[in-house]
Simulated scan of single mutants.
Amino acid sequence: MTDRITAHHQSVLSQLARAIDEPLETFFGDPPEGDVGELFTLVQLWLAIEDKQARRRVLKVAQVESERAGCREGVPCVELGST
């Protein structure tokens, strides 16, 4: 993925890295273990999806799964379109 990264993707990854208090380099190379590694994989997959409707479908699946899990304590449930 690093050979196809755009300036926009770099900006998104920089913001995400700051938000989760991880170095930007976390998103390059092999994914780390645990939650950060899963987030890494999710972000790589997300950036590969260019179609807006496809992204909406992915968000809908994530929303349904979040609601099924009861939106963990401390993690607010998010309605699509409210972000």
Rank of each mutant, 00 (worst) to 15 (best):
G37R: 05
G29R: 04
A54T: 14
E33D: 10
L45M: 13
G34Q: 03
D35F: 09
S14I: 08
Q15F: 09
P23T: 00
F40G: 00
G34L: 05
R57Y: 15
G29E: 04
E38V: 08
K60E: 13
I20G: 06
F40C: 00
A54Y: 08
E38H: 14
Q63C: 08
F27L: 02
E38P: 04
Q44E: 10
P32F: 01
A48F: 08
E22G: 03
F27V: 04
Q53S: 14
A17T: 06
V58K: 09
A19E: 06
P31S: 03
I20L: 08
L42K: 04
R18H: 07
E50C: 10
L39W: 00
L39H: 01
W46N: 10
A48T: 14
S14G: 06
Q63F: 08
L16Q: 04
L59V: 05
Q53V: 13
S14F: 02
D51Y: 03
D30G: 08
P23G: 06
G29M: 03
Q44G: 12
P23I: 00
Q53P: 11
G37I: 03
I49H: 04
E50Y: 01
L16E: 02
F40P: 01
D30Q: 14
L42E: 13
K60T: 15
L42S: 09
T26F: 00
E22Y: 04
R55F: 04
G29Y: 05
W46G: 07
E38L: 14
G34E: 07
T26K: 05
W46F: 10
G34M: 04
G34Y: 02
P32R: 03
F27K: 00
D51Q: 09
K52P: 15
E38C: 09
T41A: 11
V58I: 12
Q44L: 11
L39E: 04
P32K: 00
A48Q: 15
G29N: 01
D51H: 06
I20F: 05
V61R: 12
P32V: 02
F40A: 02
R55K: 15
D21P: 01
V43K: 06
D35Y: 11
V43T: 13
L24A: 05
F28K: 07
L45G: 10
K52S: 15
E50F: 02
L24H: 05
V36M: 11
G29W: 03
F40N: 03
R18T: 13
L39V: 06
D35V: 07
Q15L: 15
A17I: 03
L39S: 01
W46D: 08
D30T: 05
Q53L: 11
A17M: 00
I49E: 09
E25K: 08
L39Q: 00
E25R: 10
